[in-house]
Design a protein around this nucleic acid. Structure first.
Ligand SMILES: [Mn+2]
Ligand SMILES: [Mn+2]
Ligand SMILES: [Mn+2]
Ligand SMILES: [Mn+2]
Lengths: 218, 218
DNA sequence: TAATATTTTTAGCTTAGTCTAAAAATAAGG
DNA sequence: CCTTATTTTTAGACTAAGCTAAAAATATTA
C-alpha cells in the first residue's frame, strides 16, 4: 500500500510533529531526510492526495489520524526489531539502528504479532524509546524529578528546575541536555546520590543534581 | 550494491540454471519472474554490464562465478530467515516463503552471521532445501535409494529404479514425482517399511516401494 | 513599508524498472 | 530450402523518486 519511501516520509514527519508540536515545514523534512526541499514538496503533495497528511501550500503539513497510525506502526516495527537484534542476536544497542531502518519496512501483520510475542511484548526499545502498541498509541508519561526515579528506570531529560550558570555548565560537561536519555543504574538511600548512564558514560551524581533535573519517564 | 530487483533476477537465474543445467532463456526468466521478456532483456543487459552474468544476444545467459555467489547469498538469507520464522516464531512451513522473499534483501553481513549462529547453523530450511554456506557453496549429495535412508532424513525424489506402469501409477496417486520432497518419519526394521511425509500427507510405504525410489538426500 | 533574505514551489531532467507494439533473429515444418 | 511460427530484441512511453535552477510566496529588517 505505501512504498518504502512513503513510509520513511511519514515516519520523519511523525517525529518532527512531536518535536515541534505542530505543523512541519518542508525544509525541516528535507533536512531530516537528507533530500532537497523540492523533492519533499512532490512527496508531500502525493501523500496529501492519499489523505495521510494535510497540506496547504507554504503552510506546512500535519499527519491525519490515518497517517499517524501508519507512521506509528512503522516505528513499532523498527523498535521491535531493535529489541530482537539486541536481546536475541546480541548486537550492541548502538549498532542496530541501520538494520532496523530496513527491517521496519517488511510487510506482514502476522510477523509483527509473532515477533512481539517472541520478545515478550516489550514496552521499550534498547535505547529506552517506547514501542507504540498495535493501534499506534504510545504510552506517554508525566515529567518528574530525576531524584524521584528508581533504580533501572529510564527517562528523557525535559527540563531543569534551577537554571544557574554553574548547573547548566555542569550538565553541559556531562553532555546532558533536553532530549538526553538517562538511565538510573543505582541509587544510594543514605544520601540520595545516584549512578546514572548517559550515552556510553556512567557516573555519580549528587542528590542536589537529581533534584534539579526534570525527566519524562517511561 | 545490487538492488532488490537485481537480486531477484540473479536468484531466479540461479535456480533456472540448476533446473535446465545450462544457459537460461529470456522467456524462461520472464515466466519465472512474472515479467515481460522485453523487461528481462533490459535487465539482463544491465547485469551483463556489471559482469555478474554473461549474455550473448539470442543465446541466453549464464551467471558468472561472482553472480552465482551473490545469488547463493540471497538464497542463504532467504532460507535462514525461513528457519527463523518456523523455529522461533512458530509459523507453519508453508506460510513463510513470502515473508522470506522480503527478508532476503536486508543488507547486513553481521546480521546474517548472527542469525545463523542464533539458529544453530542450520543446514536445511523448513522445506528441506539446503542452505548455502557463506561462500555460496551448497552441499550437493549423491542419490540413493529411499530404503537406505534413516529416520528423520529428508530427500528429493530424483528417479525410479523400476518403472512399471503400476509403480508409476502408485507414485502418481501418492503425488510423488521428480522433485518431490520426502521425509522419513519412521522406519520398521522388521520388514523395512516406512512412514513418510510428502507435502502435507503422511503414509506407509512397503520396503518394495522404498527400494525402487531414488532420492537425493540432504 | 520598501528592500532584502529565506522558504517553498514549479518546471524540466534523470535513472530504475516496467510495459506495449513492432522489428529482427532463430527454429520448425512441409 | 522456403515459409511460417516462435523467441528475442528494440523503440518508445510510463511511473516513482530523486535532482537543479528559476520563480513565487513569505518573513525579516532597515
Ligand atoms: Mn532506531
Ligand atoms: Mn526506513
Ligand atoms: Mn522459500
Ligand atoms: Mn525477493
Amino acid at each position: 500500500m505505501f512504498s518504502l519511501a512513503e513510509e520513511n516520509y511519514l515516519k520523519a514527519i511523525y517525529h518532527l510533529e512531536q518535536e515541534h508540536n505542530g505543523e512541519v515545514s518542508t525544509n525541516a523534512i528535507a533536512d531530516r531526510m537528507d533530500t532537497k526541499p523540492s523533492s519533499v514538496t512532490d512527496m508531500v503533495q502525493k501523500l496529501a492526495e492519499k489523505e495521510v497528511l494535510s497540506y496547504k501550500k507554504y503552510k506546512g503539513t500535519l499527519l491525519t489520524p490515518s497517517g499517524r497510525k501508519i507512521a506509528a506502526n512503522v516505528i513499532r516495527k523498527h523498535r521491535l526489531w531493535e529489541v530482537f537484534l539486541v536481546e536475541k542476536l546480541n548486537f550492541h544497542w548502538d549498532e542496530v539502528h541501520d538494520i532496523a531502518e530496513q527491517l521496519e519496512h517488511i510487510q506482514s501483520e502476522e510477523l509483527v504479532v509473532r515477533l512481539d510475542k517472541f520478545l515478550g511484548h516489550p514496552d521499550f526499545d534498547p535505547h529506552g524509546d517506547p514501542i507504540p502498541d498495535k493501534h499506534g498509541n504510545v504510552k506517554r508519561t508525566e515529567k518528574k524529578l530525576l531524584s524521584e526515579c528508581e533504580k533501572n528506570q529510564r527517562g528523557v531529560c525535559v527540563g531543569v528546575k534551577e537554571s544557574s550558570g554553574e548547573f547548566l555548565q555542569y550538565l553541559d560537561k556531562r553532555k546532558i541536555s533536553i532530549g538526553t536519555k538517562i538511565k538510573v543504574l543505582g541509587k544510594e538511600f543514605f544520601d540520595g546520590s545516584m549512578i546514572i548512564q548517559v550515552g556510553n558514560d556512567q557516573f555519580f551524581i549528587s542528590k542536589k543534581i537529581a533534584e534539579n533535573l526534570y525527566v519524562q519517564t517511561n
